[in-house]
Amino acid sequence: MSEYGEEEERRVLGLAPVPPPVRGRYGDRPEQEYDLWPGEGPLVVLLHGGFWRYDRTHLTPLAAHLARHGFAVALPGFRLSGGSGGYPETFDDVALALDTIPGGRPYVLAGHSSGGHLALWACARGLLPPESPWFTRDLPSAVLALAPVADLDATIRDRLSNDAALQLLGGTALAADRLPLADPLSLARTTGTTGVPTVLLHGASDEEVPPAQSTAYAAAHRDAELVVLPGTGHYTPIEPGAEACRTVIDILERLSRH
């Protein structure tokens, strides 16, 4: 990683966590809880990154920042890869969280990095086989994927974050069978759209997740819009006060009108 990338990572991930005003539960397991910044504004559900291995604490500054800009924000936890999660548990939790937390209220789903993967996957649940426990037609109003892991096959091939995608999917022997149900790009290619208005925002200088992943996804999804931010790395879009984060707020305001 370059000096710029290392400084950006230290700066953004070093921000002090922000305690939520409310903490709730969407299931009985210890990991099935969520932070909530309540409000009457548009609801945004945030899915955190960390290559499916790390908790949501680092995204609390963004959640609080969005709340100060008029959004109601929910930030769920879920079982993590390398611990009690992975396939299928991480996907079970995300599906349950999204089926439970909004309570029928329309919402925009947003996710960063591997949280972007989970957000794009969640919007494709209507493309899963009807017998899948994750299948639903009750989808978000729109989705914003920030520097997303949109292509699990490429993530495996490039060995991103020490084979994080293989760890998520249970190893090489299981990955091939699980990819069609877990990979946003593969799912989008089945019909050419998830039916959910989709924006992908990627920094041109991202050193964690190649911008080519978002380019490939946008090419496969006819209802997806790709926004590339010049001179922007992987973490700056989730940094409160950064120009890239102002772009995130503008897009969420636009998407919340769907």
Rank of each mutant, 00 (worst) to 15 (best):
S2E: 01
A165Y: 00
A164C: 10
D183K: 06
L160H: 05
T60S: 15
T90M: 11
L174T: 12
A219I: 00
E253I: 01
A175S: 14
I251Y: 09
T190P: 10
H221Q: 12
L174R: 15
D223Q: 12
D153T: 14
G203Y: 02
D92F: 10
G41Q: 05
G50K: 01
G195K: 04
I249T: 13
D138C: 09
S161L: 10
P130G: 13
A72T: 10
A164M: 08
L128N: 10
Y26I: 11
L146R: 06
G86R: 09
H234N: 01
H48A: 07
P184Q: 04
L179N: 06
Y87I: 08
L118Q: 10
W121D: 10
E207I: 03
A124K: 01
G115D: 13
A64S: 14
D183Y: 09
G126H: 06
P42T: 00
T191S: 10
L160F: 00
P129Y: 11
S205A: 15
T193N: 02
L59F: 00
I156L: 13
D223I: 02
T155N: 01
G170K: 11
L229R: 13
A182G: 07
R29I: 00
A164E: 09
L174S: 14
S161Y: 11
T236Y: 01
V18F: 07
V209A: 01
P38C: 04
P180W: 03
G77L: 07
D138T: 15
R159L: 03
P130K: 15
P102A: 14
A74S: 09
A72M: 10
P88V: 13
P30V: 08
L80N: 09
T215A: 13
R68L: 10
S132Q: 06
S113L: 08
E225P: 00
P148S: 11
P133Q: 06
E207K: 06
A175K: 11
G82P: 14
R105H: 07
A67D: 08
A147N: 15
A175Q: 09
A164W: 03
E9I: 05
E6N: 04
V209W: 02
L47W: 11
F78D: 03
E253M: 05
P38E: 10
F91R: 12
S256N: 09
Y26C: 12
R53K: 13
V209P: 00
